[in-house]
């Protein structure tokens, strides 16, 4: 497992992030959970649609999307993780 991203994802639990995986896909969403192998992302934009408004989601990987849970991204597949810039009005 990737200890580095496990710790980082745990620290950013509840934060809106952008994760880029080694295959070049970008995943934008809120970190809901982390286990030994995966980080679970709540995609911004729900889970019903793929692509569309603003930026796209290119599929939900091998772990699928479940409401209230998000979808899993393998920790070992993460290339970069950054907080999404955010402010409220």
């Amino acid at each position: 497992m990737s200890r580095y991203y496990y710790d980082l994802c745990n620290r950013h639990r509840g934060k809106a992030v952008e994760i880029t995986t080694r295959d070049g896909r970008k995943h934008r969403g809120i970190i809901r959970n982390v286990d030994q192998r995966r980080v679970f992302i709540q995609p911004l934009g729900g889970g019903r649609r793929i692509g569309g408004f603003g930026y796209g989601f290119y599929g939900y990987g091998p772990y699928g999307y479940r409401p209230g849970f998000g979808y899993g991204v393998a920790l070992g597949a993460i290339a970069t993780l950054a907080l999404l810039p955010w402010f409220w009005i």
């Binding site: 809106a16 934008r28 911004l44 729900g46 603003g54 999404l84 810039p85 402010f87």
Partner: peptide, 15 residues
Amino acid sequence: DQLFDVLRKHHYYMK
């Protein structure tokens, strides 16, 4: 789930 649509749009408009 609709609320995450709102968050996504908000993030998009901010930028």
